[in-house]
Design a protein around this nucleic acid. Structure first.
Lengths: 189, 189
DNA sequence: CCTGAAATATATCAGTCCGATATAACGGCG
DNA sequence: CGCCGTTATATCGGACTGATATATTTCAGG
C-alpha cells in the first residue's frame, strides 16, 4: 500500500495537517492497522497537491506554529477509491520481540521473563489507548467491527502471555548452548 | 531489526542457503513473526562473509542448481547475541485488508463481505501451515510458547471473523457517501 | 514426447520508505 | 529564566522491498 493512498485515506475522514495524519496512525483509528512516517507523509502531501488530489490551506493558530491543513478533492476521492479496489496484500507482522524470544534458549531465564513482561505491557497499553479512543457503540458498524476485532486479538494476546508466563519461569536455566535445529521447510527431500 | 541480524538468526538454527533462509521466513519457524526479502538476504550474506560472521560452501546437487550453503561462525554468534540484547522495537502490524475494510462505507456490501471471506481464508491458511509445520509437543519450551501464542491469536481472529461476518451482510447498502468523520486524536483543544 | 508451469536457486536495481535529525515557536514547571 | 515537552514542517542518507533477469530441473497434461 502506497503512502499516498494512506494519506488520502486519512484525508477521507477529515481535513488534516501532516502532523495530524501521523497522529491518526500513531494513536488514532489506524493505530492497530497500519503505519506511516513523517519521512513519507510530507513528500506525499506535496505530491498530492501536484496531482490536485488535495488542496492546502495555511492556518494560523494562537500559541502554536502555523498549520498546513490539507483537504481531499473529488479527483483525490476517485483516486483513493480506485487504489483500494485492488486485492489487498496479505497482512505483514514484524515482531522483534517474538524473534528475539524465539532465541530464548540462548538468553538468561530472567531476561526472557522481563521480555515477556515488557510484551504484556506493550499490548496492555494498546488496549488502554483503544478504550480511551472511544466507545464502540458510537462507531459506524464497519468501524465497530474492526475496533472489536483488534481489541479481541489484543486481549487474547495479553491473556495468553499472562497465563503462560509462569511456564517460562520454571524453565531450567540454560547456558548459551545450541538447541536442536528448527525443522527445515522447503528442503523436503 | 537489521536484515543481517535476521539472517544470522536463521543461521543460528541451521546452515542454509539464501533461498532456504527465505523459506524459513516464508513458511518456516519465523513465518508469523517477521519477514525479509531476497533483495536483502543476498547482499546481507555477502556482508556476513566480509565480516567473517559466516562462511560459505558451494554444494552441488543432483537435479537442482548449485547451492551456496552458509554457516555461522563464533564471531557471528557473538554478534548475533549482542544484536538481540537490545530492547526490541514495538510490534509493527501492516494490514492493507483492515485499512481497506475501514472504508467499507464507501464499498458495496458484496465487496466488503468478499474481503472478509478472503481474510478468513488468509488466516486459515496460516493456521494450516503452522499445523503442518509440526506438533507443539516436539518443540523446545520457548518455541512451543511462541507457536501456541501465534496459533491462539490466529484462531481467535478466524473465530471473530466467522462470528461477526453476518453483521456486515445485514448492513444497509450504502452509496459512496461520506460517513461521520473519525474522532480526531492529538487535536485536543 | 513435447510444452509449459512450478519449484529451486542466485543476483541486481530502481524506487520507496523509515529513522534520525534540524529547525522553530510556545507553554508550563521549578 | 532556562529547560523540557508538545506542536509543527521538512529533509536526507541508508535500508529495504518488489520486480525482474537468468538458469536448471521436475512434473502434469495434452
Amino acid at each position: 500500500m502506497d503512502a499516498k493512498t494512506l494519506c488520502l485515506g486519512a484525508l477521507m475522514h477529515r481535513d488534516a495537517s501532516g502532523y495530524e495524519i501521523r497522529k491518526l496512525f500513531e494513536d488514532g483509528p489506524f493505530n492497530a492497522i497500519h503505519d506511516v512516517s513523517f519521512g513519507s507523509i510530507y513528500p506525499c502531501l506535496t505530491a498530492l497537491l501536484e496531482r490536485e488530489w488535495a488542496t492546502c490551506c495555511i492556518t494560523e493558530q494562537d500559541g502554536r506554529p502555523d498549520k498546513k491543513v490539507y483537504s481531499i478533492t473529488d479527483a483525490g476521492r476517485s483516486a483513493f477509491l480506485e487504489a483500494i479496489s485492488t486485492t489487498p496484500a496479505p497482512d505483514k507482522m514484524r515482531s522483534e520481540m517474538l524473534f528475539i524470544l524465539s532465541f530464548g534458549d540462548h538468553l538468561s531465564r530472567g531476561h526472557v521473563v522481563s521480555l515477556v513482561d515488557r510484551y504484556i505491557d506493550e499490548y496492555e497499553q494498546h488496549l488502554a489507548a483503544m478504550q480511551e479512543y472511544g466507545a464502540p457503540e458510537d462507531f459506524a458498524p464497519v468501524h465497530r467491527f474492526i475496533h472489536e476485532f483488534c481489541a479481541t486479538i489484543y486481549q487474547t494476546a495479553v491473556d495468553y502471555l499472562k497465563q503462560h508466563r509462569a511456564e517460562l519461569t520454571t524453565l531450567p536455566e540454560t547456558e548459551d548452548e545450541i538447541t536442536r535445529p528448527l525443522k527445515a521447510v522447503g528442503d523436503g527431500r
